[in-house]
Each structure stands twice: as C-alpha cells, then as structure tokens.
Simulated scan of single mutants.
Amino acid sequence: MSCDEKPSTAGRRLTRVEKQAFINASASLKSKARDPHVNKRRHLYDESAAGVLADLAECGFDVQSVGELRQSGLKYQVAVPVLLGWIPRVSYLPLVEDIVRTLSVGFAKKDALPVFLHLFRYPPEVEDRMRPETSQPAKEHIRWVIGNGLGIFASPAVADELISLAMAREYGDARSQIVLNLPKVKSGDVPRVLLELLDDPTVAASAIEALGKMKFVEARERIERLLDHSDTNVRKQAKKALKRIGG
C-alpha cells in the first residue's frame, strides 16, 4: 500500500525545521540505552512495522516508528490512508496502539472517525507476548486507545453515536474518554446520560469531571453524595466538580 499523493506531488516539501525535527527524533531514539527487555520489544516492533514503515517511506516519511510522525510536528495528512489501511493487517499491540494514537489528530478525523467507531465495537485482534498477565487484556486496552481517539473526535456531528457508546456499559472503562468529552457533542441529552453514569463505577469519575466542566448545577446534590466514595479518583473528581459548579 502506498500514498495516493506524495508530499512532492502535492506541493508539500519538508521545511528545514521539519527535517531537523526528524533528525532530532531519530537521534533521540538511537541515544537511549536499551536493556534486553527494551531491545526485545524494539525488535518485535521493528519486525511488525516493516511493511507500514516502507509504505510511509514511499510517502516521503523516513521514520523508524509510526509515532515519530506525531512527535515530529509534521502535518502528515497524506499518510492517513496508509495508516488506516494497516490497522487490520498488523496484530502487535504496541504497533496498533502507535498507529491509532498517530491517527487521533484533528486532520485525520474525516477518514479515521468512521473506522474508529467500528473498531471500538469490534476491536482488531491484537497480541503482545511480553505483556504481563496481570495487565488489562490486550483487546480491551486497544479498545480504550480507540475510545481515546473518539473522545478527541467528539463533535455535534457524532452526538448520537458517542452517546450510544457512552451508555453501553458492556464496554467498561474503555468509554472513559468518550464520557469525558460528551459535552463537546452539544446535545441536550448529555446531562441526563452523565447523571445516569454516576452509578457506573467504570466511568463515574469521567462523568463527574464532565458535569463539572459543564458547571451543571442540577448535578450538585448527586455529586456531593460521592465525596465519601470508596474510589479515590471519584472522590477527587467530585471535589473538583463541586468547585467548578459553585454555589
């Protein structure tokens, strides 16, 4: 897979500052002392990412990891279709996460949003042999990362879709960033949804924070009841929200 339009044909050339950013990012990676564990992870990443990095190079982006694109400060719009096309073709969790995070930017929203909405419900099959057994399952972790992207993309145009996902309790805390960013969809249903989610332990803290940002006065009494909650983060967000709401 390659870019439909390379930077050179689009009239987009790397500036001196952008080239230096690439050089600095690469030098930083090379200068880091790696222990055997890190070396092994790097090997697994390099092995899994060979194809996507080759395609990015065809687009004019000579990087050693997908994440270098977002870290460099470049506008990499022409690489968005390439990255989207690779999500179902790779299974190494750190690489898939790197791709999703690199696509979770404003200029990728038009193309990435419908893909993310689908992948949140049906996450790609991912694996990480070095992931501790006590960690969150790989599939649920990548769902959370995709949910983070959906939170970034939240807008009135996708109000119904995000409200529906926020209310789907079977997705657990993967919804946290969606819930937190519900105020951005500007729907009259948002306060009701957030109030309903106050009794959902997986996203209660995010719902409280969102209500606080909205300064939703009607939520004060409900939030006050959570000041003695067993969850430290819920208590913390309750205090912050009440300060914002005032009164």
Rank of each mutant, 00 (worst) to 15 (best):
R235T: 04
S135Q: 11
I87W: 02
D231S: 13
L14M: 14
L84D: 03
P183C: 09
V105Q: 08
S155Q: 11
L113I: 08
P88V: 05
V190M: 07
P94R: 08
T232M: 14
I245L: 06
R101H: 11
I99D: 00
I142F: 03
Y76L: 04
T202K: 13
Q71V: 12
K213N: 14
I146Q: 02
R222L: 13
V203D: 06
W144D: 10
I152M: 14
V78L: 14
F120I: 07
D189Y: 13
F153Q: 02
I142R: 08
R225S: 15
V17G: 05
E218R: 14
S2T: 15
L14A: 13
A204W: 01
P156S: 12
R169T: 14
L194M: 10
L29R: 10
L84A: 01
R175N: 07
H118D: 15
A159T: 11
I223H: 04
A33Y: 10
S206C: 06
I23L: 09
G149K: 00
R34P: 03
R34H: 12
P94I: 07
V17D: 13
S176D: 12
V17I: 12
G67D: 10
G149F: 02
P156C: 07
I245K: 05
A159V: 11
G73Y: 04
F216H: 14
N39W: 05
A49R: 00
R41E: 10
A238N: 03
S206I: 00
K236V: 05
I208Q: 00
E5H: 13
K215H: 10
S28Y: 12
T102A: 08
A205K: 06
R220W: 06
I163R: 07
G247S: 15
L53A: 01
V145G: 04
P156F: 03
A54P: 00
D189E: 15
V234D: 04
L84N: 02
T15P: 04
H43V: 15
Q64M: 11
P123L: 05
V145D: 00
T232K: 13
Q20T: 12
S91Q: 15
F153H: 00
I142Y: 00
V96A: 07
Y76H: 12
K184G: 05
R129Q: 14
A219R: 03
E133D: 14
F120H: 01
P7N: 11
A207L: 07
Y92E: 02
R13W: 10
G149W: 01
V190T: 10
L69S: 10
E47I: 05
P183G: 06
N39T: 12
R220L: 11
V66P: 01
S164R: 09
E221F: 08
V17C: 03
K19S: 10
D228P: 04
R121T: 13
I152Q: 09
P36T: 13
G246T: 07
N233F: 08
E140T: 09
V82M: 07
E125L: 15
L197Y: 03
P88I: 09
R225L: 12
A154T: 02
A207H: 01
A159I: 10
G149N: 02
A219L: 02
A168S: 14
K186F: 03
I142S: 00
R175H: 08
I146S: 05
